[in-house]
Design a protein around this nucleic acid. Sequence first.
DNA 1: TTCGTACTAGTACAGATGTACATCTACCGG
DNA 2: CCGGTAGATGTACATCTGTACTAGTACGAA
Lengths: 179, 179
Amino acid sequence: MTARRDPEGRCRKIVTATVRAIADVGIGNVTHRKIAALAGVPLGSTTYYFPTLDDLVAAALREAIECARAELEAWAEELMASDDVVGTFVDVTRRHLDDREPVLLEYELYLAAARSPELRPVAQLWIDGLRGICARFAGKDRGFALAALIDGHMMQALVTDEPLDADAFRAGVERLVNG
Amino acid sequence: MTARRDPEGRCRKIVTATVRAIADVGIGNVTHRKIAALAGVPLGSTTYYFPTLDDLVAAALREAIECARAELEAWAEELMASDDVVGTFVDVTRRHLDDREPVLLEYELYLAAARSPELRPVAQLWIDGLRGICARFAGKDRGFALAALIDGHMMQALVTDEPLDADAFRAGVERLVNG
DNA sequence: TTCGTACTAGTACAGATGTACATCTACCGG
DNA sequence: CCGGTAGATGTACATCTGTACTAGTACGAA
């Protein structure tokens, strides 16, 4: 028997399965078969929608970074509405770390972009977005520094698998926001 | 014909070849054959010294991080001897980025450690070393923040493949060092 | 209804991969 | 001088991989 037709839905299913696969085993270890299994589709479907595995991975990374940017928008709103900018920066960052998968994907993309230039614009989307928001609250130079501070803290928290060191983080954000 | 015997030298050659291989294609894409080719040894040698590929990769990451820590020592000395701590932080960081390979390896290790707990202590070596040095010049909290700032800036520079944004970086370091 | 095609599904295949292993040889203790 | 063993080397093999391809099927258009 053949499944009901739903090209768009199936394509999306494959992409999100790829996202999960990357989060699970890393870009270098994803395979068509793992993706197909995760998505619950036959092997052939993965090559039908994406000519090559690299294309599929790229699509998944793009998808992941689009979600991340959507979250950035929410950050911006929350920060604008807040009268405690420093505390809100700490809050949103801590909440972002609650779910490891998107963070893991962000750094998978970073590393991939470091090696393959065609992925660099995708990674730049996140960096630019983060920098833009930070610059709104700390000016250009200190804002860019704040973006690096946030990225660095998130990555270190991810690596050590410990919660964000709130005291240190808050101290850093404070100096950069309040000049 | 058989090569002259030199177990230690050969073992080292294999490990450093693995380091280069990881920098080249990433942890997920290293293979025994690539390593053997880079090291100039037959395939069998790689499994003779390291029972499994994971062991070999782990040894390479440990080796890479030991080099990085040695560089950290040099940072500490230079910082102690300097009367412009902020400027020296900027200098050493920029110089560290001159050679992409060690930086790439550091973040390969980060990502690997994020997934496999047995690598976490190795990654922690770098984080702790960096934090220790920073704390000497900025106190504990601001020092930890400074370590994250440096890591974040280095990673972003690696990803975008652009030189360190010196103005932003200096602005950040200044706020964190001079409180 | 019939027909064409966009989609589904399963299989095939050549090549790469991790690792085991059998063979050979340089070196060291006696 | 002469075993014995740690190391060197090449090959073998089962498994996994990306991707191509054949065959079938749902569904919109005519």
